[in-house]
Design a protein around this nucleic acid. Structure first.
Lengths: 348, 348
DNA sequence: CTGAAAGCGCTTACAG
DNA sequence: CTGAAAGCGCTTACAG
């Protein structure tokens, strides 16, 4: 662990001023000869500017933060990948923080990022009413903000989401083609408080598209076949238990769940009761998380390009940071139906 | 976006020096009266020290970095959760970077963290031969380093891993109890270069424990029933295709795979060929990723407490950072067998 | 217990 | 095109 060279040492060795070294590094004015000489010294000394000093001098954090609900969700992986790809070679690092730590909602990490100016920009996944304070604080602090699939209306920030109405419609069309007429929808919920939840807008949109497409084929989803539970495996299990109690000739022949995790919970419970999928019931989810294709039967779902969305969110944030403006924008990304084995032609 | 107060403004309002404000904030000497007065001003102005300035002054980064192979692995989620829990309220943030970006091995992000001193410490997951340069560079740079389940021997760093031999033995015992005598093992591989791989030590250890426990029951795993593929779903699929070609009376009645992802790939392929699990073949994995319990049949596996290990890794790194020492240490964490539906009594 | 001053390592107007 | 100087906002010996 030898002492690290600093910019002054480089300047001394190259017989120029620190300003010049800085300009060489950051692409400012410098004659070719000087540039070459300084470059050689930098090489020889193995000099790299200390990022903290650089950021301090530039008055910025040099980081953007990714806020996730908890570390369980499988789609955060893709978002992370997208953001990283966008950040590569940009002198900006990625901070990750979740809102649920040890099972408890806890916004202190993210709140301190904002207060202490630890980040220049923020990407929220699934921000809702409960995160409004945080989003507002971030805006007040002059941070660039992007929201992926938020569950509320926010202004002055970048909003990115999948085309949920279109996704629902694609599912409706798919099920109608397969001849289903008794369809159920089990949506997800968004957090509105410490322990308060309400219908998620993503799910409501998916239901809207689904109903519309089915309606075009003369199929109506009765109120009794619509419910909203939390976006969790266990809630899929819960609905499965409800489904199992229904007389088979009245039970839905196709069940559309708010996301893949719920769909998998639903399938696994049915399978453990010897219900065959898709022979006895077709199942559809949303998102296309890795588990969807790993399951047997493969889960029919609507793919959300989270990697691409993550990349775009990061891009918009970086652009706002550079421009030092706080404009907002809204972006809708297409979702594509991925038919797999869990959906099939209705029996008889 | 009102201008933020700085320490000088607080000092002015409280009619003390900046030194005193700093001491009040950081718990240095200060009379009760002064402490109260300064506290009140801080409250009123909503002052929070700017982390970048603070870190700059302290000569540190204020971050630790988590290095993952790629963003796909399901166990990174638990590690992330553990690290976050440990970091809560510690004025240290978590940077995340992966070694595989857009399908390509790319260590530049992590390398620049080290060169630019962006982190004070580093936690690597599954570091192997290919990461030795990075680990060495980190040590040379004076960073605290912890390795979770490394695939090589490293010295002068904190090493944390599950008790793989014990885990393998637990599986052996379990299968022997169920009467299995034809057992196969499909281990995983570790990266040794851009596109080079070799048997992972974790898998080798698991096989050692497995063989020993089975041996105690008079069961031997023939060489022909041992193979090593990559730790991926597709490799489980690959092995399944091999298994399907074997005559049933010679095929292994129990297959132990290097990790859960492989096991799930194996199961799903068998199921799609109407092979019943565990009736026709028992399947066991390692790790207990979320998908293991979500699958049907539930996957019997050996749980690795990744959350706890992540928390500990972070703890050791922070301790080394504070102590400014670079001691190494090694820690073995127990793994516990989680019997589920995928393993059962041997047929006949 | 408190304050004045130096220093952390960069960048960037400003002169030349 | 280049250099001297100021400044970013903290912390911390050092005096008192």
């Amino acid at each position: 662990m030898t002492r690290r060279a600093d910019i002054a040492e480089v300047a001394r060795h190259a017989r120029v001023s620190k300003s010049t070294v800085s300009r060489v590094i950051n692409g400012g004015y410098a004659s070719p000869e000087v540039r070459a000489r300084v470059g050689k010294v930098i090489q020889k000394l193995g000099y790299t500017p200390w990022s903290t000093a650089r950021n301090f001098s530039l008055g910025r954090a040099g980081c953007i933060g990714l806020v996730i609900e908890d570390t369980q969700g499988q789609w955060i992986a893709q978002i992370l990948g997208g953001i990283e790809a966008e950040l590569t070679s940009k002198h900006i690092s990625l901070l990750v923080g979740s809102l649920v730590v040890r099972e408890h909602y806890d916004a202190t990490t993210v709140a301190s990022w904002i207060r202490e100016r630890r980040v220049d920009g923020l990407v929220f996944t699934r921000a809702g009413q409960h995160e409004r304070r945080l989003v507002e604080a971030a805006k007040r602090g002059g941070l660039a903000v992007a929201l992926i699939a938020p569950d509320e209306d926010f202004t002055g920030v970048h909003v990115l989401r999948g085309d949920n109405v279109g996704a629902g419609a694609a599912v409706g069309e798919h099920l109608a083609q397969l001849g289903h007429r008794r369809v159920a929808f089990v949506g997800g919920q968004a957090r509105t408080g410490e322990n308060a939840w309400r219908e998620s807008v993503d799910s409501v949109d998916r239901l809207t598209g689904l109903s519309k497409a089915l309606g075009a084929h003369g199929v109506k989803i009765p109120e009794s076949n619509v419910s909203f539970l939390r976006y969790h495996v266990e809630c899929g299990v819960e609905y499965a238990e409800r489904w199992l109690k229904l007389p088979r000739n009245r039970a839905p022949t196709a069940v559309v769940l708010g996301n893949d995790a719920m769909a998998i919970g639903f399938m696994r419970t049915l399978q453990s009761h010897d219900v065959r999928i898709p022979k006895d019931v077709s199942v559809v989810g949303f998102d296309d998380i890795p588990s969807a294709s790993m399951y047997f039967p493969g889960l029919t779902t609507v793919r959300q390009e989270m990697r691409e969305i993550g990349e775009a969110a990061c891009h918009f944030v970086l652009r706002s940071v550079e421009a030092k403006t706080m404009t907002g924008s809204t972006h809708l990304y297409p979702m594509t139906l991925v038919p797999r084995e869990s959906s099939g032609r209705v029996a008889e």
